[in-house]
């Protein structure tokens, strides 16, 4: 679905066209679900919020002026709804039941991905979400600032602090392993 097609759908949704909403929903569902899942770390929350995002689109489509890309607008709605939920419920970790829905991880990269995953969990919500917006959605710093409704400098600073914390974690996790390797060679 290209951006012009998306814009046409939004205009039709603004005119209360249910078929247009269904079409947009089907087109965005996988990406939105994965995005919210990564922000909230909860399968249940992601499943629930995807529908809430679409409901908000239904209600606000008429106010979309086309200043930004449709996808930026939609992910902005998803970001704010998730942020509100995460802040309220303090969802920091996926609950055990949620993990039943996880796909089998790639064993080769598991170790590296685990420390990044653990590191992400330890970040304050605003920093974690900025990392996801930048690396998962591949947004520019201006788009990230627009979605998170904060200055560009704040976005850059959040990424800087997130990197510093994850780097520290990587070094800390590498040190015992390095010592272990060294002792094995002795």
């Amino acid at each position: 679905m290209d951006s012009r097609e998306e814009l046409r759908l939004i205009r039709r949704i603004a005119d209360k066209d249910r078929d247009a909403l269904s079409e947009l929903f089907l087109g965005y569902h996988p990406r939105l679900f994965k995005f919210i899942y990564r922000l909230s770390d909860s399968y249940t929350v992601a499943d629930e919020l995807v529908n809430d995002v679409m409901l908000t689109i239904w209600q606000k489509a008429a106010s979309f002026r086309g200043d930004s890309r449709v996808s930026t607008w939609i992910f902005g709605i998803a970001y704010r709804l998730t942020m509100r939920r995460v802040t309220k419920k303090k969802l920091q970790l996926a609950d055990i039941a949620d993990n039943e829905h996880l796909a089998a991880p790639d064993a080769a990269d598991l170790e590296t991905q685990n420390w990044v995953h653990r590191g992400l969990q330890s970040l304050p919500p605003a920093q974690k979400m900025t990392v996801i917006l930048v690396f998962y959605l591949g947004l520019t710093y201006e788009e990230t600032a627009e979605i998170t409704e904060c200055p560009v400098n704040t976005v850059k600073t959040r990424m800087f602090h997130a990197r510093r914390k994850l780097k520290g974690l990587l070094e800390a996790s590498a040190s015992p392993r390095k010592r272990l390797d060294e002792s094995a060679h002795e």
Binding site: N51, L102, D106
Partner: peptide, 22 residues
């Protein structure tokens, strides 16, 4: 960081969209 976030060691199995409910 980017590779891990994109790949996601814990990528979820996406449920079917609940269009009728929406």
């Amino acid at each position: 960081m980017r590779e891990s976030v994109v790949a996601g060691s814990a990528a979820p199995i996406v449920p079917k969209p609940r269009v009728a409910e929406l």
